[in-house]
Design a protein around this nucleic acid. Structure first.
Lengths: 240, 240
DNA sequence: GGGACGTTTCGGCGCCCGCCGAACCGTCCC
DNA sequence: GGGACGGTTCGGCGGGCGCCGAAACGTCCC
């Protein structure tokens, strides 16, 4: 596949909307995506097939449902890179954004504020929670930003204490970078991505420090989570 | 500009060919690009205007010529990222590649072999020279690949000895990373990019360690360059 | 001034692609 | 079995976009 072909996959507003939606890291059904983008199910179906053929999405069939998700972290990174190339607020999937219509319903509005508080961004933490954790990790010297974000020896030890382990090839040439900064749409500041960010998020979910709210990308911090944040990172969360 | 709009700029084979050509880091005239891509000058003109409007290219008018180049390192990185996403040999701008027609002329063939030996990849070194330098820098501990490529203290000292200086904000959040690996099209291995790679290339050109051959991206290593490589990096170049 | 040349603007053509609705297929559940 | 529902396939429509050639504009050089 050529550069042009790959770009063409993302060059359609509907397909782009699908990909941005899938940036939450979850699997969506074809119908959900169709409604989300405001197109007929038949149209969505065709788009999905093209995105899958192109290797951007992976599918998983369950009964009469067709679940799709981003094919991998590289795809998420690619889409983030492209999106962050042009952040003039108001992009679909972006922040409430001046100039874009205000949320039309109460339901919509609570969803937005929940997502602003804490959510996933592909496979890592975002929203105020993500930015706060990122700041704390930096302040405690677990990660340094000298010469590009890097996990320090201290950070490595911290992970070991935590009982969490990075994938063996993380950071090697061609593999996923250990630490990546990712521009947070709602906070307009960086949060942590990369293998380290993903590991943190996975750990937090595994240990029930955070839970999914409903079917979206929004998260809730549990009491266990608040305690863990305080003890491990010295972070005191503001009340919602 | 939305994700889709940005992608649409690269979703056309002609515009993609322009961008890949411009990855050599030089400024091309509109006519050169038109001939390179095999389209009428009028067509090329329109494409260029769109790419410039979209912020991917920068233009500079000189007399009756319109010179264009990539708007910045971020653009180069973006295009590299997209291209490297799909390296099934035979891509335009890629390696000679099995399945693609062999070079049709002697001129073409010598150009290709010169580029395979040494060339620029946007603003850093590529080809066998680029890969060799990358290996040496790694072997001497100037750069480490633990946890993502990073410049070491030793590398920093080496730069000072050399009298070369990184831009002040390099590596900071949002700024250009100091070291980046970039997949080499001809060698199928990584060479060095990022601010460090660019600095090396600039220094080499400034001090006449390498020279441009003709108007393309190909480079020639000068006798001074061979000496510098030997003394600074312990590299012995193979005869062409 | 005049000719060569690089570039741009404008019409016009043709194709590709995204969209929908209708019909159909599978799965799930009563 | 039958109905509801999610997804897919197909035909057809419309718009956008890339292409070219012709004509015009600017610059450079004789």
């Amino acid at each position: 596949m050529s550069l042009a072909r790959l770009a063409a996959l993302l060059a359609d507003t509907t397909r782009a909307a699908f990909c941005t939606a899938l940036l939450d890291g979850r699997a969506w059904t074809a119908g959900e995506l169709a409604r989300h983008a405001g197109v007929a199910p038949s149209t969505a179906s065709e788009h999905l097939s093209r995105l899958i053929d192109g290797g951007l999405l992976a599918e998983e069939r369950q009964g009469r449902h067709r679940y799709v998700r981003l094919a991998g972290p590289e795809v998420a990174t690619l889409i983030e890179d492209l999106s962050s190339f042009t952040p003039p607020a108001g992009t679909p999937g972006g922040p409430p954004a001046a100039g874009s219509p205000a949320p039309r319903s109460l339901r919509e509005s609570t969803r937005l504020s929940a997502e602003a508080r804490a959510r996933t961004c592909y496979d890592h933490l975002a929203g105020r929670l993500g930015v706060t954790v990122g700041d704390a990790v930096l302040a405690r010297g677990l990660v340094t930003e000298e010469d590009g974000p890097t996990l320090t020896a201290r950070g490595r030890a911290w992970l070991t204490d935590l009982g969490a382990e990075l994938p063996p090839r993380a950071g090697r040439a061609g593999a996923r970078p250990v630490v990546r900064t990712c521009l947070d749409w709602t906070e307009r500041r960086n949060h942590l991505g990369g293998a380290f960010g993903a590991l943190l998020c996975r750990t937090a979910l595994d240990r029930s420090w955070v839970e999914r709210i409903g079917t979206g990308r929004a998260l809730r911090v549990t009491p266990d989570g608040e305690r863990a944040l305080r003890e491990l990172l010295g972070v005191e969360l503001l009340p919602a």
